[in-house]
Amino acid sequence: MKKNKLVAMMPVYNEADRYLEQTLEQLTRWVDEIVILDDASTDETANICQQYPKVHLFKNETRLFNQDETIVRSKLWELAVQRNPDWLLAIDADEIFSDRIIDEVGYYINQETYQAISFRLFDFWKSEEFYRVDGAWNPWHRPGSVFLARYHPEWDASWPDNVIHTGRWPLEYRNLKQIYHSDIRIKHFGWANAEDHHQKFLFYSQKDLEQYGKVQPHTKSVMALPNKVKLEEWFERKRSLKDGELVNER
């Protein structure tokens, strides 16, 4: 049976003291190649990336993400598809899949029925133990996000005209019909450090004003009073399948 090739695409910026190593350590176990676009980091990010043989590292001379996210995303896409993928993974440096993905990714990228796989993303809030569940943060109630999609070289790869929240996939990939919603969970640590919140809030508020003319409710909710924020504790799940075979790893 033909084994499909999975290429991960990841934008990075000053990730050295964050989750980059943890993310790459795990990704290395289940993707074939990792295409990274370093958005002009000033720390050890590039050196860390180069320690992983599966990584193909590219670098912007000046920082572009804070000016126009679409430029970064579309450039990353172009670089990733040059690696001739069958499937693509769109992931950020602070997102970590549960280890079950290692057991099951082979099925996802070699099946013929679905064009994409969506997952539930859990936003860890001021900690690495608790994720946020109030309003639009609730991972259980919002639709799953597409992280894995089959690559179609024949499709047009145009992007929306956004400076922020541009999305991770070209427009053609946003109306796929056959999406499988996996029960494997993804941890997102972008909000795990409370010290980042105010700065991030200012950045996204500014971008919202540029793009929408007003600050969006989701951006405002970053600074929600503690009594409005609801949290839930992360719980581990057991792994049971390996390449379709049940295993008893506990």
């Binding site: 099925y107 029925t113 679905y114 029960d183 719980f235 799940r237 057991k238 049971s240 506990r250």
Partner: peptide, 19 residues
């Protein structure tokens, strides 16, 4: 999911019809 995570020999997940 929470319930199953508390029991050693009880699993909860889903799989595609093909699987």
């Amino acid at each position: 999911m929470k319930w199953a995570s508390k029991h050693e020999r009880i699993y909860y997940y889903w799989q595609s019809p093909e699987r």
